[in-house]
């Protein structure tokens, strides 16, 4: 089975610290990681390959250093990797990003499955996966928490919804966006890491994938960022203290009643 996994290199937001004086982000030295949900997507793809055979190709759009993220995926067990990097891609919103990835997927071949993480932890939009599916005219299943069965022409999956999940069938080829709970991503092996370092990773430009200039990057984006600002921080709260736990609990009750919360 031919499988493509779309990944993104993101800043490790769990490592982002807030400047205690200025209240702004300290961005220096924040390491880049493979978006955590994308690792779940790759793991799902690798498990299907182990079951059914085939090939797993990872694809990312980003600056040249995003190649590190692809190497990590190769070390985890992906067969091939392709980097989409071109100054013309910069500034893409989710419309332009999904168009670019869709064009690259067409160049890779005719995959039976495209895996994405449910969202990236820097943008949190969850829009690129469905966008890719729409550009390619493929069916989709998002928020997939379990793949119950890989049949020859369809997938039987559990799709999370608020308060529960649906059991659905999706005909192949399809785009599947996965939840974190779907699996536990494997760690790269020593062997895998060595192989990954030797592997040639091609870089494709806008011209390589035949992308139309007015559909990529900033010019292809329907949305524009007008303003970016630091969120208002809540003022320092109040510490409730008392002689006994009972006193403290009563104090809290009083406060919450005063604020008409309870």
């Amino acid at each position: 089975m031919e499988i493509i996994v779309c990944i993104k290199q993101v800043p490790d937001t769990t490592e982002v610290k807030i400047d205690p004086v200025k209240g702004t982000l300290i961005r220096e030295g924040v390491p880049s990681i493979v978006n955590p949900f994308d690792k779940n997507a790759l793991e799902a793809a690798l498990q299907i390959r182990e079951q059914k055979g085939g090939k797993v190709t990872v694809l990312t759009m980003g600056p040249p250093q995003a190649v590190d993220a692809l190497r990590e995926c190769l070390a985890m067990g992906a067969d091939e990797a392709v980097l989409l990097s071109d100054r013309a891609f910069a500034g893409a919103d989710s419309w332009a990003t999904s168009y670019t990835l869709a064009k690259a997927i067409e160049k890779v071949g005719k995959p039976e499955l495209i895996f994405c993480g449910k969202q990236a932890i820097d943008g949190d939009t969850a829009q690129v996966g469905p966008g890719i599916a729409e550009h390619l005219g493929l069916p989709q299943a998002t928020y997939v928490q379990k793949i119950r069965e890989v049949q020859s022409e369809q997938l039987l999956v559990e799709r999370a919804i608020e308060g529960g999940y649906e059991v659905i069938t999706v005909p192949l080829p399809a785009m599947i966006a996965v939840e974190k709970s779907i699996n536990e991503p494997r760690f790269p092996t020593m062997m895998g890491t060595m192989k990954a370092h030797k592997k040639t990773i091609p870089t494709w430009s806008a011209a390589d994938i035949g992308a139309e200039a007015d559909k990529i990057g900033l010019d292809g984006s329907c949305t524009q960022v007008k303003r970016v600002f630091a969120p208002e921080r809540k003022g320092q709260g109040e510490m409730l203290t008392g002689e006994t736990e009972n006193e403290v609990c009563l104090l809290l009750l009083e406060k919450l009643q005063g604020a008409k919360i309870v």
Binding site: Y99, G131, T223
Partner: peptide, 20 residues
């Protein structure tokens, strides 16, 4: 989950922007 599932497809199909 449903709103985010199809809003992005609609935006692509009718050629417009979407903010999440």
């Amino acid at each position: 989950n449903n709103g985010r599932d199809f809003a992005a497809r609609i935006a692509v199909r009718v050629d417009t922007g979407l903010t999440a």
